[in-house]
Design a binder for these strands. Sequence first.
DNA 1: AGCACGCCGACT
DNA 2: GTCGGCGTGCTC
Length: 848
Amino acid sequence: MTMLDSQLMLDSQPFVPEDRKNASVVSSAPFSQSTFPQTPSAPPAESSPAEFLNPTSVTVPSDSFPSDELFPPEPFKSQEEPSADAAQTELFETNPPPWELAVEDDVLLASIVFSKSPHGPYDYRIPDSLREDLKPGMRVGVPLGHRKKSTLGWCVAVKEGSAAHRKLRDVAELLDDTPLCDAALVRLVMWMGHYYQVPAGQVFDTLIPSSVRAGAGTRQTTYFTPAKDLTDEQISKLPAKQQAVVRLLISSGKPTTAAELAVAVGCTEDPIRRLRKKEILIPEVRREMHSNIRILAQHNDGERKQKLELTEQQQAALERINTAVDSGRGRTLLLHGVTGSGKTEVYIKAIEHVVSQAGSAIVMVPEISLTPQTRGRFESRFDSVAVLHSQMSPSERHYHWQRIRRGEVQVVIGPRSAVFAPLPNLGLIVLDEEHDTSFKQDSQPRYHARKVAHARAMALGIPLLLGSATPSMEAWHASQCGHAELISMPNRVANRPMPDVQLVDLRIRDERGGSGAISRPLHAAVLETIRDKGQAILLLNRRGFATTIQCPSCGHVVACPDCDMPLTHHRDGGKAMCHYCDYTIGTPPWCPACRFDGIRYGGLGTQKLEMEAKAKFPNARIARMDSDTMKRPGSHQRVLSEFRNGDIDMLLGTQMIAKGLDFPNVLLVGVINADSALHFPDFRAAERTFQLVTQVAGRTGRGDRGGRVIVQTFTPEHPAIQAASRHDYHKFVEEEMVNRRKFNYPPLGSVARIIIRGPLEDKTEAVADGILARLESARDLLGSEVRILGPAPPPIGRLRGKYRFHLLLQATEAAVVGETIRRALADFKTDPKDEIEFLVDIDPVNLL
DNA sequence: AGCACGCCGACT
DNA sequence: GTCGGCGTGCTC
């Protein structure tokens, strides 16, 4: 019911502009592109504190994604005319108060934001003692309200204060010696906070890893140096041990710890304590890494792997990228290279070019392709690579972060969070598999690494290189509008052909063959492959033994009491669990509704497929790869290396086997059910299906022995499946763009989503309705053409025991959507006892 | 988010 | 009178 509802909501209601009486949508938006000077050059690496947030010094992307929102001048000031509040203040306060008249006007102020409420920004006076040291990007301790302890905040700006009439409190202390992010990153934080509608303080917490904030793997160590004005006479009067300590320290000239001194002199630490009391030894506290962590540094001096010869096509791509790097301008490049066209080698060569000019680069890859193979490829070609993976311990992470910040790293490879890597001389950002949905974070701040990378690259005046065999509609559209430069690599390396794709129509009983998931043609193909000593991959876009537990007698489906989602039956231990909230019960032996005892496990999961495959191909060595079997760290890697070594004949799995694997002996890829992603209430369902089928098909035909693909489907005539079967990306985008245009869905327009959740259904819905009303009045006030959908229950209507509703907004301009929400929710509050939360998702990638 | 203030009723 | 419950409002 919920599925149907939101499908209707998304697919019906063509977007009809209400009226055109207020056509000046863009100019009424406060942060439209036209507001800013077009400055193509990069901002100075170190801009002075006073001007670092100044809009005139902000570099504006000269080529940006469509409907882009730019760095706002002052994101936190209300853009309204001087508010009624301000007028009231003037009326009722003696202004300025007489006792503050004496204070000079030109005080230095720090603008501070907080990661917890209240988020600020608030202005604090900078006492003279901190004047020299306080820089934007540092953490400070400040008094706040009536709190007893000082509160941690982030300094986002240092500025000259003119408002002497306001009561201002002092910054109490600095919590960092050097800023944790440079001026450019502070600006990125401010932009993200504005664009994604998240307090800047929370963005800092995302930008700076918690391990860095906590100083993981570091220790406070006290070093001693001798006092400056020590005379020989003074020293000779000291007791013997103390004398020895001081003389040693003077002769070595190095600050030394108490423990080291004690060992060197052969005494206890007591003489040192006494010297400290007498102020003959001056202590100096430093924070440093544990020595054992330094060992983690991986330097590659040894074997530098063979540099591959580039094909003509690769060479041409590389030259265009190098030209962009050398131009010193911010621009976006879309490298559209079919699977197996050798994109990685192009990235490496382009980065070698950047590194040769003392620059550095970020390479972002989907979480799942951060495999040892990917790592190895980069590590063998560069002196200093930092690989940021999820298995890293906090102290390792901190260690690498410091290395990166010190400029000791040439290439950073990581998932979406790598976009924040604090490289001091960044020259290129690469986003591999640009279309992958893992680049969108699904918790606050819900940023998209592509968007953030774009903002960062444009602000620095460096190229952003997007690579994919199946570019997202967004990237493709950008290339068609001149916002991105398209580089095509239509051929595979060594002129290998694209694999043949055969569609199997599952509606035909004869094709389907029996009750299993493996059709007759697929069965035959597998047998042939095994006979030829080749390897096969079977993709099933689901996990679990069976998707649903359905009673054949009454039709009852066993569902989760908290989420309303069908439970998935898992064979190990006869469990049934909810994939959304982890609710688990023993599999019921009979139907809970009608007590019929022949309950059926419908649907299909990888476990069941594994059983079927083992029964049908008893001589094949089969391994399963899904998020259930890959829970333990390293298991992923182990199965893949077994597959590479030829110890496994057939690999079964979910999405994760579709991406980036490069095994030359894979002669067959089978897609068990290509429709599984197609019937989702999401306007990107067709795009997902096309990408999935194309990507998995690309896993074969990578060796000299060719390869073939068999795609099983109930709807072989669907354009996405047709296009995928012919490797025809252009045909797909052409047709899909028509669909998007019908309703102005991205990339033609911009979408945002507001999710409202709470424990009581009616209260939650009432809040959703209240938000709708506010959105409508904000829209009318702005005179903007924003289409507002909902509130409706999302496809997952209930999650973790909470009821959910969502609202969708769309318009041609991202800035308009953002501003409508910002105004509607600016002072919106709910009754705390209803426990209702609402969250904003800008540019959502899934609508669950 | 804290923390204080202020307004209540219930207790020493 | 004074203690403590919680509703309300502010924090540069």
